[in-house]
């Protein structure tokens, strides 16, 4: 069952990647229309980053408020790692886009700023985790931070666009084919996120068992 799902996910991801290169027409209205097709990778990465960020915050909350199950902490931590990776990919693809369309890789555009601050949050989250020894304290403290940040970031999304002028395109320039590919690709990346999340959790479980064994042997 899981194997079939992985194979389907692999084929779909391949298909949508091919579609992004072969099927999508250059987006008219951009300075470099043929290069604007990178949005078919950029936007889905942003979606996956947001989904991962939510998962990290939700399991953080669950760990903090519902009985301190180490598995919830592991889920939250791994989702945070993946959120950081997807944030990084979003930033990189966005910078490639910005370099060719707006002339500079970084413009402090509101969305760029938001994703960058999100990256900073995950960096701070891992620094905090690294600084605490006791696993329960580490889990609870990190969870409290990720939930607090999760509450404050929507405010960011609301406030920043009011203050910084935006370069981001409003969606009028992309035709229906773009929408199909972007949504399909988003589904694939979210599927990949779920798969990686699952691997990560199993790794953490095995690590925990190994530690326990080691302790009993000592």
């Amino acid at each position: 069952m899981a194997t079939i799902a992985k194979i389907v996910l692999g084929i779909l991801t391949g298909v949508f990647t091919a579609l992004a290169f072969l099927y999508l027409k250059p987006a008219e209205g951009f300075p470099r229309p043929e290069l604007a097709r990178i949005v078919a990778l950029h936007l889905p990465n942003a979606m996956a980053a947001i989904v991962a960020a939510f998962v990290a915050a939700i399991f953080g909350w669950k760990y903090l408020a519902r009985g301190r199950n180490p598995l919830d902490d592991a889920k939250s931590k791994i989702a945070a790692v993946l959120a950081a990776i997807f944030c990084g990919l979003t930033t990189v693809t966005g910078m490639v886009f910005a370099q060719y369309q707006w002339g500079a890789p970084w413009n402090w555009d509101p969305k760029q700023t938001c994703i960058f601050l999100l990256l900073l949050i995950y960096a701070a989250y891992f620094v905090l985790r690294a600084g605490i020894e006791d696993p329960e304290k580490k889990g609870a403290t990190a969870a409290a931070y990720i939930v607090f940040a999760g509450v404050m970031t929507p405010l960011l999304g609301y406030v920043i666009p009011k203050y910084l002028p935006s370069l981001h395109p409003t969606n009028t320039k992309f035709d229906a084919a773009y929408h199909t590919v972007i949504w399909g690709m988003s589904a694939c990346l979210i599927g990949i996120f779920a798969w990686l999340q699952n691997i990560g959790i199993r790794y953490e479980q095995v690590k925990g068992m190994a530690q326990q064994l080691e302790e009993e042997m000592a």
């Binding site: 905090l128 600084g131 405010l155 960011l156 406030v159």
Partner: peptide, 19 residues
């Protein structure tokens, strides 16, 4: 709760204080 505290407060609060 952390053992190495220096600079950590600024690191943690900056992204949350951005808005």
């Amino acid at each position: 709760q952390a053992s190495a505290k220096s600079g950590l407060l600024a690191t943690l609060s900056l992204p949350a204080l951005a808005p």
